[in-house]
């Protein structure tokens, strides 16, 4: 009788170990799975505002280096749209940014321009719960129409103030297919590694700054948002003006980042694209862990 009861846990120890390892493998797999690809409709949305003329201007800039005008999305000046934007602003933004964007707890918006507003709202950074928080990407609070209305309102405020700010830039069509029509990819790669990867990681996975500032991943960013961020500089990220990066260079970076995050991982699962740390984790937990289990099956236990 004793032998029966004492031998039972030994039978249970094997399955328990298997379940533990299975759980570990599952968590690794979940982690390793690539981030869900951006829905195509959303990509189109981000560029639907781009006027064809804007696209062709930047495309022309590829030929003539350093084109002076960046293609911009036309912002509505329809009074009805501006009024709708003002109503949304008064409901959701005024408590921190002050009446008419003059600033209060949060910075003034009198010269930020459409690019900054569009960037903050389409990436879900605004509205914030508290002014002490770092704005980080998330699910957008407003829908497409509402964002266009708020952009129109802030644009109206800025233009009335005499400081129109940076317009929403447009970038050439995406470049994920292997073809010879993307001469800017290589330029974008060099510029990205020279200007951006120091904080965003060479893989665009993001990182960490001092004082608790998080560097967000670029995986969910659209090309338009990337171009906006470069020009606007959502703090703590610095803005890059036309003197530092030409319009063509901004387009090249956006193009490359989009390629980097949407062309798939050559060589298999990217394990979060964070480099040697997750690689070591997989090697020890998955690789050696599996082999220890095999050794345990082959060898004697006792």
């Amino acid at each position: 009788m004793t032998s029966h009861s004492t031998s039972r846990p030994r039978i249970l120890a094997g399955p328990a170990a298997l379940v533990a390892v299975a759980l570990a493998l599952f968590s690794v797999l979940v982690w390793a799975l690539p981030a869900p690809a951006q829905p195509k409709s959303q990509l189109k949305t981000s560029q639907s505002g781009a006027s064809q003329s804007g696209v062709s201007k930047v495309a022309a800039g590829t030929v003539a280096r350093g084109a002076k005008t960046l293609g911009t999305v036309k912002v509505s000046t329809d009074p009805a749209v501006i009024t709708a934007g003002q109503q949304l602003y008064n409901l959701h933004c005024e408590s921190c940014h002050g009446p008419g964007g003059v600033g209060a707890k949060a910075p003034q918006l009198l010269d930020v321009g459409p690019a900054a507003v569009d960037f903050m709202l389409t990436t879900g950074r605004m509205p914030l719960n508290s002014v002490t928080q770092q704005p980080l990407p998330g699910t957008p609070y407003f829908n497409k129409t509402e964002i266009a209305e708020i952009v129109a309102y802030i644009n109206f405020v800025d233009v009335s103030h005499g400081t129109p700010g940076v317009g929403i830039p447009t970038v050439p069509p995406s470049c994920t297919k292997e073809s010879a029509t993307c001469p800017t990819l290589s330029e974008g790669n060099e510029l990205f590694l020279m200007n951006c990867s120091q904080c965003h990681d060479a893989s665009g996975a993001g990182g960490m700054l001092s004082h608790g500032y998080v560097v967000p991943s670029l995986r969910q960013a659209t090309k338009r948002q990337i171009a906006e961020a470069i020009r606007v500089g959502p703090r703590p990220m610095p803005g890059f003006g036309p003197g530092q990066l030409t319009n063509q260079e901004v387009a090249a970076i956006a193009d490359y980042v989009y390629y980097l995050t949407h062309s798939g991982n050559r060589g298999g699962f990217g394990i979060a694209n964070f480099g040697p740390v997750p690689e070591g984790f997989v090697a020890i937990i998955f690789g050696l862990g599996l082999l220890l289990l095999v050794a345990r099956v082959i060898g004697n236990r006792g």
Binding site: S197, Q198, C199, S203, M208, P276, V277, G280
Partner: peptide, 12 residues
């Protein structure tokens, strides 16, 4: 002149 965040050596 270049750098990358998340620059680590292999685990060992």
């Amino acid at each position: 002149a270049r750098g990358s965040a998340g620059t680590q050596p292999d685990w060992y």
